[in-house]
Each structure stands twice: as structure tokens, then as C-alpha cells.
Amino acid sequence: MTKFVLDRRKFLTVSAAGLASAPLAGCDVFDAAVAPASPVRGFMAGANELTFRAQRMVLGRAALAREFAESEIRQGMRPNGSTDPNSMEYMFLRQSDFALYKLEVGGLCEAPQSWSLDELRNMPSRTQITRHDCVEGWSCIAKWTGVPLAHVLAEVRPQATARYAVFHCFDIYASGASGRPYYESIDMIDAYHPQTILAYGMNDATLPVENGAPLRLRVERQLGYKMAKYISRIELVESFSHLHGGKGGYWEDHGYDWYAGI
């Protein structure tokens, strides 16, 4: 019996010492390997391609994101990212409540056009109550009203070579010392998806500035950073490698994956 007690005491002492020293081991040993330019990081990022292909395989073109009931809207939509763009052009348009705003749609299409906000509101509209999932981890349910991007695309008639829709925005996103224009891109499968809309309304009111007025994108099967706010222009392209950082979006240029399905 005495032996048993000693064994246990010894064990408890050793394990207490072990647990106490564990947090001292730092984790910065991996920082170099996972830094943006590292080949190890590049190899690991290859898994994002696998994720994209796997999701497209199980998802198909038409699967819809869950839509919720009115009663499930329990709070206002949490604004994130830019909430008050201060480019000259945007502030000028905002002064007149975007009466002078025109959405330009061009690039690889037969009939480039531009529309005022009123003209967009007179197009067929779609209203959906969906859950916005931020890459940070939070979610928020809100009601969105807008014109299906598919309708706008039908008007401009994309050429066969058009593979992506690029959304150029008014906001200069500030990160650190320098700011860069926000932009995003989606492929034609998501562009033609029935829930992909250019929203001008939110929770039964005009889309507020902090949530992206006059026009923001909803791509309900991806994360929030794909859903560009403050859209000024849509450009149809074959490749986005010549635009900004070349990765197809502001956050993509900062290391996030282009396909934000998870």
C-alpha cells in the first residue's frame, strides 16, 4: 500500500512540472514556413484547389443556400470591412443620394451598358432572407433585395470567352499604412446562380451606406468577403491575373483563397 501512494505522488509531481512548462514552448518556429512567399505555404495552399473541386462536385450549379423566415431576422445586419468610403467620387454620389450613380457593366460582352439605380430597381427583383457567414467566424441573418446578376448579364450578352465577373468598388480598403481599392471576382457558375443578386435593399429599407450602398453583391454559397460592397463597375474578363494583385480580389491578394466556400 505504501508503495502505491509513493508512485502516485511521484506521478503527480512529474505531471504538474510537465504541464507547467508546456506553455513556455513557443510556436514561432513555424512562422517562416507558413509565410506568404514560402514554398511550404504554396504547397499547402494547393489544398484549396481540392476544396474548390470537391465543393463544386457535391454542390452542382443550382443548389440553393438556405433561406430563412422573417421571424429569424432578430437583429440588424452587422457591418464589416469598409463602412464609410471616403473617395471623392463616392462622397460626391452620396451627397445626392446616388441619384447620379450609374452601374457600368462592360468587358467581354456584346452590349456594354450602364444603368441608374432607378433603372436597376425597375428590373425583375429577388428578395431572400439568408445567413451571412463571415470568414472571421460570425454569422448574421438579414433580408436582401436586388436584381439577379443573371438578368443584368442577359442584357449585356457575355462573350464565350468571359469566365469571370469582376466587381470594382468605390472603397479604398485601408490595411496598415496604405490603402488599396476593394474588388472581387466570381466565376460564371456563381454569376448565373439564382441567388446571386446585386442588392439595393436590406431588411425592407434602402441599403445603408455601412452595408454597401448603393449596390452590393450577394453570393450566398460563399463567405462574406466575396460579397463586394459599394460596386461601381462590373467587368467581364477571361482572367483576372492583370488586375491589382492578380489573385482575383482584395482579400485574395492578402492570402485568402479565391474560392470562399468554406
Binding site: G26, C27, F30, V34, M44, A45, A47, H254, Y256
Partner: peptide, 25 residues
């Protein structure tokens, strides 16, 4: 969570996601 138990040690969600999804697969 403290720097000693995160990869990378500094705050960087994008890199955390790359590492997480790779090892998830």
C-alpha cells in the same frame, strides 16, 4: 489564445486557414 499556441504566432487568419484546410484534408 496566446502566440505560443497559434500558427502563425502572430495574428493572420488567412495563413491559419491555409494550414487548417491542408491538414484537414
Amino acid at each position: 489564445f496566446p502566440a505560443s499556441v497559434t500558427i502563425p504566432s502572430y495574428q493572420d487568419l488567412a495563413t491559419g486557414r491555409v494550414v487548417h484546410f491542408f491538414f484537414g484534408w
